[in-house]
Design a protein around this nucleic acid. Structure first.
Lengths: 337, 337
DNA sequence: ATGAAAGCGCTAACAT
DNA sequence: ATGTTAGCGCTTTCAT
């Protein structure tokens, strides 16, 4: 039923190889023949079978993209940017959701391996060694994680976390809390490391509440813990958690930023729309997606360069941060009511 | 570099075909040989090349899934459910984002055609005829749209819209507005049709504000139009728009539900978290994803049955709807201030 | 139970 | 500029 290269060949009275050339190396075929073949192909509705072609060329013109969780609004902009970039380079992107599960992640890479020219691993939860292992089967570019020897695209969340802490300290906060993300997250470790260092440097205390699911629910559920802590300001692993925290605090009657300041990370679309609007560390998701695609595509030609792109982040101050209130400040000496 | 079936054959001292059988028809091979081959394959890290296998069997064990917009939170639950179902059936799902663009959509289907056993088209923006055309190249299941002769999974949004209108009327509203979605959306037409009918039946007026981008921005931007309209209650094309509208109205100092009631459609996660919590028509996205996968998979065996699954929707009343206020009710006779 | 051979749709030398 | 041939990695008759 599907029309093959052979059908086109017979119908246009040339050999298969000529039809093949018409598509993959047009300049090698007589213009007249070419247009005739093209016409027939069009008329027959012929479409080259990319899978069959890949079997021999070794290039599928497909890229795989695996994300930890499709439902996290941080990813769609990254994915869309990657798709746009890939399209420009005549490639297609197949997305798959790993469900925050390292095993699923691994299985997906293996399943994709032979059908794509490379895989973008976004915020992988697998161990470094598993990723290194996998990278022998298929070219990999890792996003949101740094692994020595592998091409990586990371956002400088460490710098972002530092800026966030500095911002809070400048406002007068001395008791901070960090709402950590999931285990196995490189980003989480980076944030914690920088936040701890920055707090120490500024002479502020930093309580760590961790691990938590990197979701709104996670932030929402953590609201109680935050309230029990003497912290007057909290930095969350990502915007989703920060937003959940906002809701949780509101539910508990704790005013933001009056009683507690909240900072997120990512600057997802929604961060502009909360009440109060969320102060957050903007990460360039779109740029990361494009960079990752570029690295994957050029990595194919030259397997030696394993560049590590570091993208800058930026603190966006909105309404969820303010100086600690007199009431809260007093809590350090007197008891809370 | 990649290890092939031939490598395994030589290493285990049997013929390729035996290795092949070990994987695709284990019962046809001697248990001893089988375990030996399996051991060697494991040790060599052999993975059958699905693409090569597909060339001959005609089945890739991959499914394509194309969504109108990955950034719409309505889709992730559907996608995740579809992936789960596919995994159970030993299939993988490749997702792609059509960017609300019919042309991109078509291109994606064509690109996927030979690499998947079928494609799930979610909320397609293409014309019926284009879809019908494409369905000759690759098995298609359409979600959120009804096309005669094609297997479809639709949510009964018409019934949902009717219930929403009835709910509003029961509360006492007589001036309603419908915030429509994008052109080319089957769902949009269904909603409009049912809402109009239900309003007429109930003796209420229904203004139609359309088309709008089916996004938060779309709803936000429409707030002004809503305020100019005498309507005391509005039904939005989806939750995203309803939430945007909530924000827009808030910005304009219009209280919800005190001055205007708002109803969404979809019941996305976020709808539970807005302030006020959104009254909405819940659509069973997960069930739709699973049903679509099932249809696609059984459709492969039996091309004649083109079932149309209709999934029920349900009105979820939360806090964004209330009786019209005296002030607003008075606006019909006196002038608004 | 296993081997031999043909071929899926296509491309890539190598001829001519 | 075009045809011939071989073969990518795998499955599937058909023999044995």
């Amino acid at each position: 039923m599907p029309v093959t290269i052979r059908d086109v060949a017979t119908a246009s009275g040339v050999h298969m190889s000529t039809v093949s050339r018409t598509f993959s190396a047009p300049h090698l075929v007589n213009p007249e023949t070419r247009s005739r073949v093209l016409a027939i192909a069009e008329q027959l509705g012929y479409r080259p079978n990319r899978a069959a072609r890949a079997l021999i060329t070794g290039r599928t013109h497909n890229l795989g993209l695996i994300v930890a969780d499709l439902a996290n609004p941080f990813f769609p902009p990254l994915i869309k940017a990657a798709e746009g970039q890939a399209r420009q380079r005549d490639h297609h992107i197949f997305v798959a959701d790993a469900n925050e599960d390292p095993l699923v992640e691994e299985e997906l890479v293996l399943a994709m391996a032979k059908q794509v020219d490379g895989v973008l691993l976004c915020s992988p939860r697998m161990s470094n060694s598993v990723i290194e292992q996998l990278s022998r089967d298929v070219p990999l570019v890792v996003v949101n994680r740094s692994i020595p020897g592998l091409p990586c695209v990371v956002m400088d969340v460490g710098q972002g976390a530092r800026r966030a802490v500095e911002h809070l300290v400048e406002l007068g906060h001395r008791q901070l809390a960090l709402l950590g993300g999931p285990r196995g997250s490189w980003t989480n470790r980076e944030i914690r490391r920088s936040a701890v260092a920055a707090a120490r440097l500024a002479g502020a205390e930093l309580a760590i509440i961790s691990p938590n699911p990197p979701t709104e629910e996670g932030g929402y559920a953590a609201a109680e813990l935050v309230v029990r802590d003497p912290a007057t300001a909290v930095l969350a692993y990502n915007d989703l958690m920060a937003i959940g925290l906002l809701e949780g605090l509101d539910e508990l009657g704790v005013g933001v930023p009056d009683q507690v300041s909240v900072v997120g990370i990512d600057d997802i679309e929604l961060a502009r729309r909360t009440r109060p609007k969320l102060t957050t560390v903007a990460t360039p998701a779109g740029a990361a997606g494009r960079a990752a695609v570029d690295m994957l595509l050029q990595h194919g030609d030259d397997r030696r360069t394993t560049a590590q792109a570091v993208l800058q982040t930026e603190l966006v101050v909105r309404e969820s941060t303010a100086p600690p209130s007199a009431a809260a400040a007093g809590a350090e000496t007197s008891n809370r009511e």
